[in-house]
């Protein structure tokens, strides 16, 4: 099982969150909007400048910067 950070996802790819390494306020914020272990995410938009990327999480589209998305680790769905 290979862990991939969300920031490495390509548009259209899906993953399931396995581990949240985020620290501080952002960790709480991410959990509050539904980024918890076992949650399905899909990378749905990429900014024209390459960063941030936006992810579909529990019905909402949320954009995260690269450094922040790097702290959320997922696995490809089987």
């Amino acid at each position: 099982m290979r862990l991939i950070p969300l920031c490495d996802m390509k548009k259209g790819e899906e993953a399931v969150i396995k581990k949240l390494e985020t620290k501080g306020d952002l960790r709480q914020r991410l959990m509050d909007i539904g980024f918890v272990e076992g949650t399905k995410v899909k990378c749905v938009r990429i900014s024209p400048l390459g960063d941030p990327k936006a992810y579909l999480v529990r019905g909402a589209v949320i954009a995260l910067r690269k450094e922040d998305a790097a702290t959320v680790l997922g696995v490809e769905e089987l």
Binding site: D25, L26, R29, L30, I33, R45, P52, A54, A60, V61, I62, A63, L64, R65, E67, D68
Partner: peptide, 10 residues
């Protein structure tokens, strides 16, 4: 440093 941010695209 830039604060982390989450931006919802409604």
């Amino acid at each position: 440093v830039p604060a982390s941010f989450t931006l919802e695209l409604p």
